[in-house]
Structures are given as C-alpha cells and as structure tokens.
Design a protein around this nucleic acid. Structure first.
Lengths: 339, 339
DNA sequence: TTGTAAGCGTTATCAC
DNA sequence: GTGATAACGCTTACAA
C-alpha cells in the first residue's frame, strides 16, 4: 500500500463514470451536472484524493510554482520580503521555490540558465547582476519576471522602495541637526538602488549648499564589516567627517561599532543614519536613525503583480515605488543622552 | 516562437535517431555509445534544450523538489538553517519549496494536508504541532520526512542541537559567576526542545544544590516582547531573581531592555544568558552571553539525511544531535565594565 | 547499441 | 452532460 496514490481513474472506476467527467467535476467546469459533481467530490474526499501536479502541469503547461531568486535570506529585509511573497502565493495556491545567489552574478546566471523553466510559471528576482542577458532569455521564453528591491533598466515590472527620496530625507535630516561634514558609505557602484541613494545624498547636499567631497563617498560591500572598515578609512583622512549616511543599517552599525572603539560620541559628536529599519535599530545603543522600507509590502505587491502577469499574457509592465519613512532615533540627535 | 520549448523529440528528429536514445544519452546511461552521446549532448547544447521536470517527474514518480515547513524565516536561526539546506539541495539538483506555518499548528496541518505530495520527494520540517497525525499520514504515503530543530517522539530522522547540555552549561556558568537566584524564561510547555532546555536548567540547579523555585519558571511566547513582560512579572515577586537564563536570545534581549528601564546593571548585578548566538548578541550593550547553535550545519545535515532517505527507501531513521557551545560575553560577567 | 511502444495522471478535443 | 481518445515530454520495458 506504500506510495499508492489515488488518481482520478480510481474515482471514475468506483463511480462508474469516465475520467473526463471526474476531471470536469473536480475542476468545477460548467458542463457537468450538479449531481455528478457532488458525487465526485464526495468520493474524492472519501478516498483522500490529491491531484498530481506533475500531470496537471504537463498537460496544461503550468505548474503553480513561482521562483524567487535573491542574494540572501539571512537578513531582516529579504526574509520579510519573502514572508510577504509567501503570504500571497499561499493564498492563491502557488508554491514558492527559493534560489540563493549569494550576491554572486555568476551564480545568478548559472541558476537562471539551469532553471527548470518548465517548472516555473513566473519568477521574482532581486538581481545582483550588472547585465541582463540571462533575464532576457527567460523573458523571451514567455516566462513572466517581476523585479523587486534591486532594479534595472529592463522593460519589466518592478517593485521597489523610493531610494532617492529616502536618501534625500536622511541626508537633509543630518544637515538639519547641524552636521555638515557628511560622508556616505555604500555598496558597489553598479547597483541602481545604490546609485539612487547616492543621488539622494548628493542632491540633498547640493540643495543645502554643502560642498561635495568625492573622497567621502566610499563604495565597498554591504556587510557590517565593510561599515567598520569604511569608517576607519574615512577617519584616516586629514579632514574628517562628522556624520555618515550609510546605504543600509548593517553598514551603519558596523560604523557605529568602530566609532565606539575610537571613543567618538555617537549622536552628540557624530551623526549616523542607516537605511532599512531593521529591528536591530532599536536594540543597539544608541538607537539608530534610519529610513524604513516596507519589506513585507514589497513582497506582497511583487507577488500580486507576478500573478497578474501569469494570468494575463500581455499585461503591460508596471513599476511600483513604495515610499520610505525617515525614523529619527538617537544616533542622529545632538541632544541625545548617551548612556 | 513564444513559449516554444525544445524537447527531446526535436533533438531526435534533427539527429535522425529515436527519442529513447536521446533520453538515454542525456541521462548518461551505460547502454548508449559514446559517439551518439557526444552528438546528442552537442545538439542539446546547440538547441538550448532544457528538460521538462513535470514530464520527468510524471514518468519517474519523482520531482527533485523537497519541501521545507517551518514557523518563520525572519530570524537568524531559521534563515541560516534554510541557507544550509539550500546549499546541499542546490548541489544535488533539488529545488526547495518553502512553506511557513507562522507557528500555528492549525496552519501546519492545513499545509500538510493540502500538500501537493506528488510534487515533493521529501520534507524537512520544524514542527510547531503537539500531535503528529498529519506527519504520520505523509510518512505513511512513503514520503521521507526529516525533522530539524524542534523534535518530537516519532520514529523518524531528526537533526537538532543539544538543548539539554547547552542549558545545563548556561545555568552552571551563571552559578559559577556567583548568581544564585536564577530564573528561567521560556516558551510554551508542549515543545520538546523547550522541555530539554528547562531540564538542563533544573538539573544544573540541582547539581549545585540550589533550590528550585517554580515561580521563577515563566512559560510564555518566544518573542522579544515576551522577554520584557516575563522580566517585569518576575520582578513583581517579593523575592526577586538576580539572573535569568532565557530560552533564546530574543527573549534575553527583551529582558535586557526591561532591565535597563529598571536601571539594573546587567552583568554586574544581574546575569543574563540566552540561547542561539544570534549575531545581535555582539551588537547590543552589554554583549550577550549565549549558547551557540550550528544553524547552518543543522540545515546541511538535515538535507543530506533527507536526500539519503529519498535515495534509499528503507534507510533506518537516525537522530543527529549537534553540540552547542557556551559563548561567554559581558551580560553574565560580574567583572564586566559596562559603558 | 538502438528503436518501438506503453505508460505516468491530467486536460482538451472531439463525438455522441 | 458525458465518454472516448489524443496529447503533454519523458522514461522504460521489450524487441530488434
């Protein structure tokens, strides 16, 4: 009795009707009598019938699987996005299949090219790549793709936060607190969201008539460790900054760790602002000012959009930009009481 | 040309051979000549052939998909476990499909019963349930299941950390630091890992001849907020503890937040130890003493074990217990310099 | 070593 | 409304 699964054939046989009728009844099509439909559903329940998705997929050309491709899941932002995606997917009876690129462009391309495309109805991707042939190929095969978080110049649907305005507000806030030597520590230059945050920073400085110093813009990685080393290298210049705007909270925290080591009073003497609103912001001392990203919403909206594309083949692509919100905490307040 | 996919038929036609030969060549079976194999592989590459996993799954009765069922992914521990699982799965050409239960037993059962079992070769689960009929049903159908993290009394393969010893060491450490009024804040009583940590705590007290006070054992939820409220309620007793061992780092941190509010000096006057070794432990002030869990390893080993079960039908089940390691930081050190 | 044909569980296209 | 039957792409006896 091991591995013996119930199929529509079994239902058909027991009910003395044809498989096509059973199939129709189960799918609730219009051309089946209410009576037989009842009978079939009852019998299906009785036998504990579960549809075989491989067979269904093979004959319909769809699978109810969507792929998620992203760099990591071990941070607040991405894991929350996935939770949002999962919610919608689950509600609409889609499975999500997870692929991690480790922020490696090579790996991302490998995954995409090996992708069992026949097994995926659509793809949600936060790309770490700097060119997009591999995405083109997939789109060319008619598989809908929706980008989230990290964006790109392709003609495709995208869901992301408003990086430019968030960065503009963050920088403006530092200026309003009286900081004027503001550095920016960020990630690789080839990411568009990185560029947007940089532009927000630059335009805020410009807007307030503060000179821009290119040596105060540091491009390294996204990790906390990079935040620490970035700060170190900034402090080695003869002219030192009195505040930093970091591309994300992890780097901001890395910088704070280093500032503490150098006995610089965060808030009072040195302003720090991050980006993301990782829950950790409220746990560290001092608490970290940041720009909130609606991670769950981004996941939710991206998934909804993808499902629409899956349902309707030539749906025009669409870009959704969610506003962030500046959340002011101790790390940027001159009046903070550091404990 | 949209959605037009290359099948083995195309390869067969172009090469003037039969589909079965193509199939054999692609699967690298022994009964095909080296020559034709070469030809087929070349042509496959040329046409950019990608196998259809639905078809393959349907005919072989396997899918190369494994399901992961767990409460959340938005914390360090689970997201790291998944990363470990993903690594192995990817290396062996398996996809992982993610299901989140939100720590709801009802939801877990719903997911399991709706599971497109035909679409899954095996399941990795961190169950939040207190009875296991739903798991039995799946195992009964011959789908291999490996439990990770949270354990249970079923006859099945399991991979988990050594909760008992970790808790024993954590508590012993507090005692060795001179704390003697040690409370334990933990999760729901029906989880076995919770019970194990509780037992470790109890036996350590016993071992050092310290009386056990049942009012100092608080069962609530696993969240940080619960940690704060637990501490509050402990401090409302006339006899107050001078240390806590928390079931996880989140609750420990919640307790620390509350201790700070009450102006109690953590480390010097009040010892705190957590469990997990979330990276946040090193970022908060004071840094948090904890028991490390090998999250990535647990994922890796669980996945390897599952793949073995998938390959070999009647592999005897096996329980792997990974040791934790006490990591001593400021929160439990009487000599700590709190900044 | 290769080819033929049946079969995996569904859905879809016809007839009736 | 219902029932044959072909098809989806692949694997796998069995034959040659």
């Amino acid at each position: 009795m091991l591995h013996q699964t119930i199929t529509i054939k079994d239902i058909a046989r027991e009910l003395n009707i044809s498989v096509s009728t059973v199939s129709r009844a189960l799918r609730d099509t219009f051309d089946v009598s209410l009576e037989t439909k009842q009978l079939v559903l009852e019998k299906a329940k009785e036998l504990n019938y579960k549809p075989n998705f491989n067979a269904r997929g093979l004959s319909q050309g769809k699978t109810n699987n969507i792929g998620i491709i992203l760099p990591f899941i071990t941070n607040y932002y991405f894991s929350t996005v996935i939770t949002g995606i999962q919610k919608i997917a689950y509600d609409f009876n889609y499975n999500i299949i997870l692929y991690l690129t480790n922020d490696s462009e090579e790996r991302e391309k490998l995954i995409m090219s090996n992708l069992t495309l026949s097994g995926l109805d659509g793809i949600l991707i936060s790309t770490c790549a700097s060119n997009y042939d591999h995405v083109h190929e997939v789109i060319g095969k008619g598989i809908p793709v929706v980008f989230f978080d990290r964006t790109n110049p392709l003609e495709a649907s995208k869901v992301r936060q408003d990086d430019y305005n968030g960065a503009f507000e963050a920088t403006s806030h530092l200026i309003s607190q009286g900081f004027s030597e503001i550095a920016h520590i960020t990630g690789p230059q080839d990411q568009i969201f990185t560029q947007n945050r940089l532009n927000g920073y630059l335009n805020a400085l410009e807007h307030y008539g503060i000179p821009i110093r290119s040596e105060w813009i540091v491009h390294t990685g996204f990790s906390q460790e990079c935040g620490s080393t970035d700060l170190q290298s900034l402090m080695s210049h003869c002219k030192k900054p009195d505040a930093i705007f970091a591309v994300n909270d992890r780097k901001a925290i890395g910088a704070m760790v280093q500032l503490k080591k150098e006995n610089i009073r965060i808030g009072q003497d040195f302003g720090v602002v991050g980006f993301t609103n990782d829950p950790i912001c409220t746990l560290i001392t001092p608490t970290l000012t940041t720009v909130s990203e609606s991670a769950f919403e981004i996941g939710r909206i991206a998934c909804e959009l993808l499902l629409k594309h899956i349902q309707k083949v030539n749906l025009p692509s669409k870009e959704v930009i969610l506003p962030g919100e500046l959340i002011i905490r101790e790390s940027s307040m001159r009046t903070t009481l550091v404990d």
